[in-house]
Design a protein around this nucleic acid. Sequence first.
DNA 1: CTATCTTTGTGCACGCGTTCACAAAGACAT
DNA 2: ATGTCTTTGTGAACGCGTGCACAAAGATAG
Lengths: 261, 261
Amino acid sequence: MATGRTHRPATRSRGIPEATVARLPLYLRALTALSERSVPTVSSEELAAAAGVNSAKLRKDFSYLGSYGTRGVGYDVEYLVYQISRELGLTQDWPVAIVGIGNLGAALANYGGFASRGFRVAALIDADPAMTGTPVAGIAVQHTDDLDRIISDNGVSIGVITTPPGAAQQVCDRLVAAGVTSILNFAPTVLSVPEGVDVRKVDLSIELQILAFHEQRKAGEEAAADGAAAEDPDEDQAPPVRATPAHRKGPDGDMPAVMPA
Amino acid sequence: MATGRTHRPATRSRGIPEATVARLPLYLRALTALSERSVPTVSSEELAAAAGVNSAKLRKDFSYLGSYGTRGVGYDVEYLVYQISRELGLTQDWPVAIVGIGNLGAALANYGGFASRGFRVAALIDADPAMTGTPVAGIAVQHTDDLDRIISDNGVSIGVITTPPGAAQQVCDRLVAAGVTSILNFAPTVLSVPEGVDVRKVDLSIELQILAFHEQRKAGEEAAADGAAAEDPDEDQAPPVRATPAHRKGPDGDMPAVMPA
DNA sequence: CTATCTTTGTGCACGCGTTCACAAAGACAT
DNA sequence: ATGTCTTTGTGAACGCGTGCACAAAGATAG
């Protein structure tokens, strides 16, 4: 889903599938909850249910980490928490910088989920001079001009971009130049980064559009189920006046209500 | 990535792959930008570059929608914008309700990306009586007690959950009971929903942990490249004191520095 | 020590998604 | 009309991820 992740054919034999990596945090969260309730061991079945996945998948995921777990018993909760934390690199401290302290940036700065697991908001950076010095979530906002120094001084390797889309690529370039090698991008922009830099994006608008697609499909099917053999459920409005495409032959033969040939 | 999405073997022949659906918003965004610059047509190569994907993938994606596009020329921008919008269900209005008006909820309410594409924040809901009536982003916050009525009155079918994790499942249940069939969940919780309800989750903490994993891997490889044949890069601290697992035989033979047998 | 019962770890098959590579389609020039 | 050149649309091969189903491992009881 992120941009990078297509190089190196797993240099070390330690080749944990990307899909598995994405699920480890899920397992970790479920295990932490069990740990807090002082549950000593858990079976793959139980844990899978808690994490909302298939138990076979969970076992296979864990098999990539090693043979933790005892047949006939299950997995030792504390031990597994440690192993997964270590695998994810959560036993060390990760200073994070947030660039773009608008509504979203401020919300993230205040978000508790950060500190809980090795992540520490080390710096808040914004381009607006009026913001400089203002404390947000107990941290003084610093100005973009000092970005380079801030990143270096704090040893930041993970940057979070919450700027407007227009500024995102530029900020990204500066972060990378300053030494950041992992970026979490909330701006609705496709970032281009050099080899070796990982980018993950969180795009609210895209998520909503995907939901809208399924929502529409559900509504369409429902309507079709009701009105027996009603025609296709996709003629709401006329398409915009258009030129040239004098050929329409969709795979299922439908076409927009109005189509200037 | 979401929970649901494993039922119905594509009832209608209209079987657009999930992976393709997830990319359509990306294409749409790139196309909209071109449209604003009054670019009339675009080739798969150019558009793919703008969206950050492979051009063959883009062509295959479009082929699921139909045979829009002209060989030797490319795709008509305006026409494609319309087709994708229609496919995603963006030609209609989607009233959205946000539940949990904390920092994040308020940030989302203020987020411009909503209104731009058919989505409209129809209601803000919070459990705190002190919040009731307070305007956020120009909309008065309403109380959870009225959730049912609010959803019905506004015809909301898409709900956004930005509550603390403890309240998420309960809110989810109430939303579903009130008629919501699509949920965007920002709370770090696994939601269980009945058949037919789509859930997508956005989990900041998980994204960061995935980045941390790769970050650690990069650091490890780098260190290995430097220090020639240095030992395994995973012994930071001693694991917590533990019992029972008297067998350690990881796939690559490594084991934590200290391991009480 | 043997038998039984539980639960892990994994071989295998299947399906989805990606990518290559190319034939077909059309634009455009002559 | 014919030929050339560009770009689409897609058949086919490949690789990854998922889930089934079962043998092996170990716990536990007698």
